[in-house]
Write a protein that binds this DNA or RNA. Structure first.
Length: 892
DNA sequence: TATCTCACG
DNA sequence: ACGTACGTGAGATAA
């Protein structure tokens, strides 16, 4: 017979993980009474997985009883300095216990003891009684309980990804046995429990020492025999700390529990109570799982109450003539399309609100009726929408030139908080506590099963509900914008730039298919040749595009040195291959093969696939995606067309002007991010350099290498200085710079130190940026664009450091994005005012591309740089360089 | 769907 | 002691 199984869960630590796993969703998980439910929800998900996996007969979820335990008697500061549990989590703990009881699972807590000790004691009992024991926790400390009978599952990321610690796995990870792990911790201490361990001893050293000496006690018996070293001194000096650490780290396996193994046997689930619990918590997913047989599917009470059905009328042709709409009135409009790519997506229907009445229809052709069309095109009739650009492009396909859209719910919510970053109206509504709108994927399905609901009620409710939500949340969102001082950013940058982008997307850019197919043939021949050579060198045929197969060939069959590993095997990235170049000629061939294969598949084939019937590609600029305020470009991405290699650049020859004798004109900002840095830091030296018009990288080289003149700067020096300049913008580290420049870390640090000496205010800016982010919880651009940085307070060094670098970089990258957006708005206005036929067609972060008729070239040459350079007034000049030619390749 | 790799600023 | 440059999108492979 199989062993009996005992499952022990560390309630507090798992709840803690559960809470932070869905921390970003915190405000989305609230029941109607306002209780946060994210941790409860995630805890249940974890339970499902673990119960299913372990199939235990006995289960105990242990909780910490109170603040102080017997460990505080040994060491008053035990767990001192720990931030207290956020109230959003502690309010959920009683409900987690309630849920566990409804599920027939036992919970237990004991005064003066931690959950760890309860679990440790039950492990002892369970092992004695012949149970197979599984422990689930978020705390690595409990791995000391691992044994042949006991496996300790520790959450890795979130709560569903668990790492199983058996004694063998312990050995692999820490190099020590579970019992030795206690001694190891005694030496290295524990920051989160706030006890120090021995000075200058971390996991690595501690593991080595314990592997040699077995226990802390044995180590001190032999400490005098160790050869003199700083470490030996530290060990002797900190002996007390080590011995105390051992006591604190040891889990009590004989705590005076008042329950036994029979008390934790699983009881039947109380379905009635469970259903009431899920209803109270508004857990629709779990509720629907309660009735797999489908009989009387429980109606979600709270949702019903929340979703006051919105009244609407199906629009008929005759109604249109009865519309009485006058200038200055506002209507709310929503155009439904199936799928993300609104250039091609199927129309689902529309909804609009006029005169307090909501109309809906599946038939978008009704919009072309003269009265409706002129309303939508009337600038004096203002419109509320969700996604101005999508709506404008969609209407354009119906021959309607939308005007007067001056409120965009999507843009507003993106500016207010782009952390969760959804473009689904249902999700956005829920962020603001409005549960009335379903997500599009709930209504239309996702993946293969996307379809328009046949039931009129379902579709019309959805569309009408959106109209109501746009109006209901408008005041809230506008108030938030004001509170954030973002009204200007919203009204004078994002809304106008959305209009400009609509024009650009609708115009598209002409791409010559035959140029691409010619390249396709050339590359195909080259690839075939290289393939054969590589197979020959390797001695067998394999898939060069498979990192797995390539890794096998290079590092196992050919015995090359694996320089870097990835999660799944050997890394074969450019970095690695470049370092192996001299080992074998196959490396060079693989690099070239990869480069060409990339260009062939992504650019040649990729672009050919997206050329529309009009001979153009119509990208979509995602305006509400990036964390920094930049645009991104998809279907196709026009912001990463190759420019760095000769073969890659050929792709640009396919991008041509509308008219055969016309021009592609390109104009890009020179060093815009560094100029922004000079501006926001106010650094005198750097500003002076820009005002004088120096080559900034050469100038930096001169300064950090202590030269008298830029004439003494060698190309190598300039290259290095350039890397430092870039590094600064990214929130530099000596490690990152050393890797980038292939130099020692020490040398990299020297460069950085020199840099900060020469540009002291840049250093100040960086410190201040981090400090401000810590105080406010977000970083901000010149135009008040925000990026929230909750991780700036993270305990984990890496997570926190990342947030700190982000705090430095975001205002720089974001302000540059603000500036080019302003330039685009001014540029489009200029083109319109001057009635030019020239079209602005592409934006690549610091660069604008134009499709110019022959006779407008001279005008464009003059006005584009002017407009870009005068987008904003800074303490230093903005500079824009331009070029032109009969295709994008020649426009450098 | 996740992972790796590589294209851009 | 640890592991790190900032921001993106797309294709191919392998699960």
């Amino acid at each position: 017979m199989a062993d009996k199984k005992l499952l022990l869960i560390d309630g507090n630590s798992v709840a803690f993980r559960a809470f932070y796993a869905l921390y970003r969703q915190l405000e989305n998980f609230r029941n109607p009474e306002g209780l946060h439910t994210n941790a409860i929800y995630t805890f249940k998900n974890m339970l499902d997985v673990v119960l299913n996996d372990v199939e235990p007969d006995h289960v105990l979820v242990a909780f910490d009883a109170g603040k102080t335990t017997f460990r505080n008697k040994m060491y008053a500061d035990y767990k001192g300095g720990r931030q207290k549990t956020p109230s959003e989590l502690s309010e959920q703990l009683p409900y987690i216990q309630e849920l566990l009881h409804d599920l027939g699972l036992s919970t237990y807590e004991l005064d003066n003891y931690e959950a760890d000790d309860i679990i440790g004691t039950f492990v002892t009992i369970g092992e004695k009684e012949g149970f197979k024991v599984t422990v689930v926790t978020g705390d690595k400390d409990l791995t000391q309980l691992a044994s042949p009978q006991t496996t300790v599952m520790v959450t890795k990321s979130g709560v569903l990804n668990l790492e199983a610690y058996t004694p063998e796995h312990m050995k692999k990870v820490n190099g020590v046995t579970p019992t030795e792990f206690i001694d190891m911790k005694a030496l290295m201490g524990d920051n989160s429990d706030n006890y120090p361990g021995v000075t200058k001893i971390g996991p690595k050293k501690a593991s080595q020492l314990i592997q040699e000496y077995g226990t802390v006690e044995n180590l001190y018996d032999h400490v005098d025999d160790m050869k003199p070293s700083k470490m030996k001194e530290n060990l002797i000096n900190d002996k007390d700390k080590a011995l105390l650490g051992k006591k604190l780290a040891t889990i009590d396996r004989h705590a005076p529990l008042t329950i036994g193994i029979d008390d934790v046997k699983r009881r039947p689930i109380d379905y009635q109570k469970l259903r009431r619990f899920y209803e109270k918590m508004n857990f629709r997913k779990f509720l629907s799982e309660l009735n797999p047989d489908g009989e009387s599917q429980p109606q979600d009470q709270s949702e019903k109450a929340n979703a006051k059905a919105v009244a609407f009328t199906e629009l008929k042709e005759n109604d249109i003539n009865n519309f009485a709409i006058t200038d200055g009135q506002t209507i709310t409009f929503y155009l439904g399309m199936l799928g993300a790519n609104y250039h091609l997506a199927k129309f689902v229907g529309f909804a609009l609100k006029i005169d307090q009445k909501i109309f809906v229809s599946r038939n978008v052709d009704l919009l072309k009726e003269a009265k409706l069309k002129s309303m939508l095109e009337d600038k004096q009739i203002t419109k509320n929408v969700f996604d101005l650009k999508r709506t404008t492009v969609g209407l354009n396909r119906l021959g309607i030139h939308a005007r007067g859209i001056d409120y965009d719910m999507l843009l507003a919510s993106y500016l207010i908080n782009n952390e969760n970053n959804s473009d689904d109206m249902g999700e956005i509504c829920r962020m603001y506590g409005d549960n009335s709108v379903k997500s599009d994927y709930d209504v239309y399905g996702k993946g293969k099963s996307v379809h328009i609901p046949e039931d009129d009620q379902v579709l019309f409710n959805h569309l009408a509900g959106k109209i109501a939500a746009i109006e209901n949340l408008k005041e809230t969102l506008l108030a938030k914008l004001k509170e954030h001082e973002q009204d200007d950013l919203y009204a004078n940058i994002e809304i106008p730039v959305a209009r400009v982008l609509s024009v650009m997307e609708i115009n598209g850019i002409k791409v010559q298919a035959n140029t691409l197919t010619e390249l396709q043939d050339e590359f195909a021949v080259d690839l075939k040749k290289m393939e054969q050579q590589i197979y020959h060198e390797a001695g067998e045929e394999f898939n060069i595009n498979s990192p797995k197969q390539l890794g096998h060939i290079l590092f196992e069959k050919m015995g090359l040195k694996p320089i870097k590993k990835t999660k799944t095997g050997y890394s074969t990235s450019v970095d690695v291959l470049n370092q192996l170049k001299d080992e074998n000629p196959i490396i060079e061939q693989i690099l070239t093969y990869r480069q060409i294969a990339k260009i062939q598949s992504t650019y040649v084939n990729g672009l050919l696939d997206v050329i529309q019937k009009d001979g153009r590609v119509h990208t979509r600029y995602l305006q509400t995606l990036t964390a920094t305020g930049r645009l991104s470009s998809v279907d196709p991405n026009l912001q990463n067309i190759p420019t760095r290699t000769e073969e890659g650049k050929q792709i640009r020859k396919a991008f041509v002007p509308s008219e055969p004798d016309g021009y592609i004109f390109s104009c890009d900002y020179s060093q815009i991010e560094l100029r922004v840095l000079a501006q926001v830091s106010g650094d005198e030296q750097m500003q002076e350099a820009f005002r004088t018009g120096y080559d900034i990288h050469a100038h930096t080289a001169m300064r950090i290498f202590h030269l008298k003149s830029t004439d003494d700067v060698t190309p190598l020096m300039r290259r290095r200085a350039k890397a430092v300049n870039f590094g600064i913008v990214y929130g530099i580290s000596d490690y990152g710079l050393s890797k980038n420049l292939n130099i020692g870390r020490k040398k990299a640090k020297e460069f950085i130190d020199n840099y900060f000496e020469q540009y002291p205010q840049v250093k100040e800016y960086m410190n201040k940026a981090v400090q401000v982010a810590r105080e406010k919880g977000y970083a901000e651009t010149i135009m008040h664009r925000r990026r929230y940085l909750p991780d700036i307070h993270a305990k984990n060094y890496n997570v926190r450091s990342f947030a700190e670098r982000t705090a430095i970089n975001s205002p720089i990258q974001g302000s540059a994005a603000d500036i080019i957006k302003i330039a685009m708005i001014n540029m489009q206005k200029k083109l319109d005012d001057m009635h030019l036929k020239t079209k602005m067609v592409v934006q690549v972060h610091d660069e604008l591309i134009f499709d110019v008729p022959k006779d407008e070239l001279e005008t464009i040459k003059k006005i584009v740089p002017e407009v870009m350079q005068s987008a904003v007034r800074l303490d230093i000049p903005l500079v824009a360089d331009s070029g032109y030619g009969h295709n994008w390749f020649d426009a450098k």
